Each structure stands twice: as structure tokens, then as C-alpha cells.
Simulated assay, not measured.
Amino acid sequence: MNPQLAQTSSFRSRSWRLILRVAVFWYFVALAKTIYDYYLLKNNNGEVFEFINWLIGSWVACTIGLLLLGPFIVYLLYRTLRAAPYWKVLSYLLGGFTLIALVADMVAMPVIYALDNKVAVYGKESLAYAFGYLQTPNFLAVYFFWLLVTVLTVIVILVNEKYGPGMFGKLLMGQYYSPKREERVFMFLDMKSSTSIAEQIGEEDYFNLLKDCFADMTGPILDNSGEIYQYVGDEIIVCWPMKVGVEQARCVRTFFGIKLQLQRRAAYYQETYGVVPSFKAGFHFGQVMAGEIGIIKRDITYSGDVLNTAARIQSKCNDLGVDHLISGPLWDKIADEFPQGGEQVSDQIELRGRQERIDLYRAL
């Protein structure tokens, strides 16, 4: 499978699933808010609106928001603005949301007015009503309510991006408060010749080089459902739940996707830093203990022999003259995903600190 096509397909699929989940959430919120407003007015002897008409109008506004804000969240916030400062992300979000709120009002309110009064949907009366609604306190109340909903949506997306899909709910429910055993695939990714590069270009440029590299890597990692576990100097540790990591060999295809992305950006790196970075990777899987750790700064931590083994496998790349190494047990699970096969680089090699010997492979 072509890594570029696989990533594009994966990103599109992930984007559509994201927009679908946001749509379901927003339509549910619109329904709940309409029910709440209706019975609040009814129980307090207020002017009760036509429930169905307002619900239709709310869902029309949600649809406008999804059509306009959805691409912003997925393609800008979720990808392009990922490496931007938070103030810039918030500024874009606030500006985009305000513009969309105005558009949604001018589209949805004429629908509600027309349904209530049996007039043309976008006639003079309906449009005048929509424009007048912009100047009422009700519009501001609705504006800030949906701004809060949008911010909450973005926060959930960012948490899921940091810890992996579905992790927000697990953290919220405290599923990692007590340690739990999981089976995971790990990739230890390290920059080649990092010491000599740092000496060549200086500390500040080296830091910016790492920042650019990690930003470029994020797309392929997310496209293959990877979870960024840690940044350690010039090293990045990525992991997958076992089933996800071995399916379509996503763990190894992530590495190929990263190589492809850095090759695409070779001219930029050469012009900016005078070097084109390259990375080496080690892959292994096994049982780990997973749980929340920390008080002030909470994080999910994994502990287990599999991490040490994956790190030592990666350290053998230079010795064996390859850019990636896969443990024999992991290769047995993913070999069928590579039509061109693989190469056994080492037979029963001894890893530092381990008595057990292990076969090492690379994918072709």
C-alpha cells in the first residue's frame, strides 16, 4: 500500500468521523436547549414559542455551523494551527465563530419566522426579523452559549489528540486513576546524528529544528491512529493499543509516513537549517501498566519491560545499518501487511540488559 495514499485515506476517514461525532453532539445540545427554554418560559408564564419551529431553526443553525466551522476545526485547528501559539488559535476560533454566528442567524431566523407566520422564508419580513434579532439580548445569550459549546468541543478534540481517541471520557470517568494492565505497541523514534547536528547549527536552531520535525511528524502519527506518549529530547515515543497498532501495520506505516513527510520538506530544512533530518525507529509490543500520575501536572504513564526493549531495539539501528528495526514477535503479527516482505536483519541478537535474545526485522 502506498503510504501517502494510506495517510490521505486515513485522515479523511478520521475527519469525517470527527465531524459526525461533533454533529451528533451539537444536534443533541440544540434539542436539549430548545426543550429547556420552552419549559422555562411555559412554567414562568412567559411567551411560549412554537417548539417544532424553533427546533428546526436550531438544527438549521447547527448545520450551518458544521458546514462552516467543521472544516475550520478539522483542517485548521486540528492540523494547520496545531503548532501555533494558543492565543492565535483562540483568536482564529473567536473570529471564525463570530462570523459563523452572524451567518447562522441570517439563515436560521428567517426559517423560524416564516414557519411561525406562514410567509416567504427569505422575504423582506423574514430577513428584517433576523436582522432585528441580532440586536436583542437573546442573540447575545445564544451567542455565548454556543461559544461555550464550541470551546468545549475544541477542548475535547485537543485532549483526544494528546492522549488518543476516546481518552477524554476515560479520564473524565477516572478509568486511569488506578493502574490497569494493557497490551500496547510502542515505537521509539530518534534523530540520527543529533549530537553532530546540534554542534553544527547551534542550540537555538537545533531546538527549532526539533520543533519543526515534531510538528511534521504529528500528521502521519494521527493519520495512523497513533498516540504521542512522550517527547524526550530529540526522541519521540508513540504507542497504539495492540489491535489498532497491528491492524494494517499502522505502527510501521507511521514511520514510513514520517519519512515521506520529511522528504517532502527536505528543501525547507536544507534552506532553513542547512541539514535534512532523518530518524531511526525501534518497534516492540507487550504488556504495560497504565495509569494517571502526578498532582499538579497529571499525565498518563506506561511502565513495563516492553518500553526498555523497544528503546534498545532502536539503539541497534546504527550498529546494523538500518533506519528501523521490528522485533520478531511483532513482525510475525504484521508481516502479511507487506506484500514485498521484509528482511531478517539479525538472528537472535542480544540486547543490552536482557538475557533473552530476539530476532530483528525491517519491512521492505
Score class of each variant (00 low, 15 high):
81 L>M: 15
95 G>W: 09
159 V>L: 09
106 M>H: 06
144 F>G: 02
126 S>M: 02
55 L>E: 00
61 A>N: 06
115 L>Y: 08
77 L>K: 06
45 N>W: 11
157 I>Q: 13
176 Y>C: 05
121 V>F: 14
168 F>R: 01
73 I>P: 02
79 R>Q: 13
76 L>H: 08
96 G>N: 01
88 K>L: 15
91 S>H: 07
58 S>A: 15
129 Y>C: 04
62 C>W: 01
45 N>G: 15
87 W>Y: 13
51 F>N: 02
68 L>R: 01
70 G>F: 02
183 E>I: 13
89 V>I: 15
180 K>Q: 15
139 F>I: 05
108 A>R: 03
97 F>A: 01
79 R>H: 13
73 I>S: 06
162 K>P: 04
153 T>G: 07
84 A>P: 07
147 L>I: 05
74 V>I: 14
149 V>M: 06
99 L>Y: 05
127 L>E: 01
89 V>T: 11
107 V>W: 00
69 L>T: 03
62 C>E: 04
148 L>T: 13
169 G>C: 07
162 K>L: 12
67 L>Y: 07
107 V>H: 04
99 L>C: 12
150 T>W: 07
131 F>Q: 12
114 A>T: 08
182 E>V: 09
123 G>W: 04
179 P>E: 03
93 L>T: 09
142 V>D: 10
142 V>G: 08
64 I>S: 07
54 W>K: 00
130 A>L: 00
150 T>D: 11
147 L>G: 03
163 Y>T: 05
142 V>R: 06
80 T>I: 13
129 Y>S: 05
104 A>D: 01
82 R>T: 12
51 F>M: 11
183 E>Y: 14
147 L>Q: 04
154 V>L: 12
110 P>H: 03
66 L>W: 01
90 L>M: 14
101 A>R: 00
118 K>G: 10
157 I>M: 14
72 F>S: 07
122 Y>R: 01
129 Y>N: 05
49 F>N: 00
103 V>Y: 03
155 I>K: 08
54 W>Q: 02
133 Y>G: 06
108 A>D: 01
